[in-house]
């Protein structure tokens, strides 16, 4: 289990030394999160939200100065025992270009005692990647496949993927995802994947969290997240339901608009609870529409002003 407790991260302007909150850019602010064993966890967030920072903190690339990040009960920074359980694939592959695939496997096998050449051979054969060719000659997608193969061959308990599917074509994307899921299910391992592709997270993950400007907005099972939001349409002959009326009824409104006597709003809460509140507003017609994860993502961020300027300008 990965436990992140009140973790914050500040990028100092002045190099080494403990950074004060006002002395730089605060990338993470009081993040608490538990990632149970055996799940596939999705990290969602806007650009620069802090997803990659959080992943790097989870694999010990960043030191946790405030709060803690623990892997199976142990702090991860500079802890080889905890790090031996994690493999991190970042969003770039340029660092591997001077390796051949076999060379990269040998490199990681030097560090990971759990490295399995059997898994490596099986996956390389399955994906038909050239073993002796320098990775600088690989396409971006091939490089991503290669790193994922190495990650799986390292046989770690946790696999962290930072936008790892971005270079892949849709067919290969599906294929790779299937391979990863099969491998992880076989081993009952845990995967954490960050992506901007919400459909992908929706398909792949059983849990997700949304982060924005370093602050966590929500984290839960995807079904719970989806059932925690809804779009309502309320029609009333005597006039549209106003925003104040909705708020007075106790609804948490993320977005509101009105067309004639019909009011539309995106609200937070369970289906039962929202229905109960809607009924109290005395409308002629009440309708509840469930939201997709993508809609929740957009409404949550819009409610925090993200993209509002751009939308306003257009």
């Amino acid at each position: 289990m990965i436990e992140i407790s009140t973790a914050s991260m500040v990028f100092a302007k002045k190099g080494l030394g403990k950074a004060e909150p006002n002395d730089g850019f605060k990338a993470l602010d009081n993040i608490s999160l538990t990632i149970p064993d055996g799940c596939i966890y999705g990290f969602l967030g806007s650009n620069g939200a802090g997803k990659s920072t959080l992943l790097r903190m989870m694999c010990g690339v960043y030191r946790t100065e405030q709060g803690s990040v623990r892997i199976d009960g142990e702090d991860v920074f500079d802890n080889p025992v905890a790090k031996a359980k994690i493999f991190f694939v970042n969003d770039e592959t340029v660092q591997f270009t001077k390796f051949t695939l076999d060379g990269l496997a040998r490199y990681y096998a030097s560090y990971f005692d759990s490295f399995s050449y059997a898994t490596y051979d099986r996956l390389v054969t399955k994906l038909q990647l050239p073993r002796k060719k320098r990775m600088s000659e690989f396409s971006k997608g091939m490089k991503q496949q290669a790193v994922v193969i190495i990650g799986l061959a390292c046989n770690t308990k946790y696999l962290l993927l930072d936008e790892a599917f971005d270079g892949l074509d849709p067919a290969m994307r599906k294929f790779i995802k299937q391979i990863i899921v099969n491998e992880l299910i076989d081993r009952q391992a845990t995967m954490v994947v960050s992506s901007h592709n919400i459909v992908e997270i929706n398909e792949l993950c059983d849990r997700a969290m949304l982060i924005h400007q370093g602050q966590m907005i929500f984290a839960d099972e995807i079904d719970n997240i989806k059932s925690g939001f809804g779009k309502i349409q309320l029609a009333r002959k005597s006039g549209a339901v106003s925003l104040e009326e909705m708020k007075n009824a106790g609804l948490t409104v993320l977005q509101y608009n009105v067309m004639g006597s019909v009011a539309q709003a995106v609200v937070r809460g369970s289906v039962e609870w929202i229905n109960e509140k809607m009924n109290s507003l005395g409308c002629d017609i009440c309708e509840f529409i469930p939201l997709t994860l993508e809609e929740i993502f957009i409404y949550e961020l819009e409610a925090r002003g993200y993209g509002a300027n751009i939308i306003g300008e257009n």
Binding site: E74, V81, A84, S114, K157, R187
Partner: peptide
């Protein structure tokens, strides 16, 4: 089923 990274040692014992 393959064995997951079987590092059983505690970080305190790491040398």
């Amino acid at each position: 089923m393959e064995q997951i990274s079987s590092v059983k040692i505690n970080s305190n014992n790491y040398k």
